[in-house]
């Protein structure tokens, strides 16, 4: 589904990503872990077209995404959910979700699917998003991305600002999506233990390059990962 080849990205004149190789198979959930400033967000933003690489290639479903504007990639089913969510605060939940289906008309089925995953959103569908809690907003953000039947979902720290219980809940939803099939997910996460539970594989990004990758199970036992990301001495 997603293939990243020898990717270099600069931001503000400084090289932030260097020679990154990565791939995500159809229907796979893959985690991207790394400390603050490692370049996780930069990678996701490059894949969804918000940033342009200086070198390298990114393909989704065999088609290059380099140079394609972000709105066009969104229409092709590459949906990025940023950590800061980027919702429309003065619109209702329903309108926010409806915009996720743009330019198509939002269908009932899609609304039902999102409300099924997040029953709380059904109760609050008329509420203005700006007045909702952080956890509820995260549900809207993921829900909005799902309104368009995406092929590739890029989640940037879906647990930002969530209490531990809510973070687990968010990952339970991601697991359900994975089990339902048909959706490919690349997610950046600082709460590594959660990410490794739901993802089949993971990449470790440090200083803009991939330093380790492999199945979640083996990474979890890797001493470097245990020390740096799982809090074991």
């Amino acid at each position: 589904m997603l293939r990243v080849d020898r990717l270099d990205v600069e931001r503000g004149g400084a090289r932030v990503l260097h020679a990154v190789d990565l791939h995500v198979g159809d229907g796979e959930v893959v985690a991207l872990i790394g400390s603050n400033g490692a370049g996780k967000t930069t990678l996701l933003r490059t894949v969804c077209g918000l940033l342009a690489p200086t070198q390298g290639e990114v393909t989704v479903g065999g088609r290059s995404v380099v140079g394609v504007p972000a709105f066009e990639l969104a229409r092709r089913g590459i949906r990025y959910v940023p950590a800061e969510r980027r919702l429309f605060p003065a619109l209702s939940v329903r309108d926010n979700l409806a915009l996720g289906a743009y330019p198509a008309r939002p269908t009932r089925d899609r609304h039902e699917l999102v409300f099924g995953l997040f029953p709380r959103l059904r109760e609050r569908r008329s509420q203005v998003v700006g007045t909702m809690s952080g956890g509820e907003q995260q549900m809207v953000a993921i829900g909005r991305a799902l309104m368009s039947s995406p092929r590739l979902l890029l989640l940037d720290e879906p647990t930002t600002g969530l209490a531990p219980a809510l973070a687990e809940e968010a990952y339970a939803v991601i697991a359900r999506l994975r089990d339902a099939g048909g959706l490919t997910v690349l997610l950046a996460e600082q709460q590594v233990h959660l990410a490794l539970e739901v993802a089949a594989r993971a990449y470790v990004l440090e200083g803009g390059t991939v330093t380790m990758d492999g199945p979640s199970g083996s990474l979890r036992d890797e001493p470097g990962v245990r020390r740096a990301y799982l809090g074991f001495a």
Partner: peptide, 24 residues
Amino acid sequence: SRWGRAVRSIIQDEEGATLCGIDP
């Protein structure tokens, strides 16, 4: 209208609108 919602969405958050497939 869908057009109207798209307009209002850009006014509130241009990047968010772009991520929804709207061409600002």
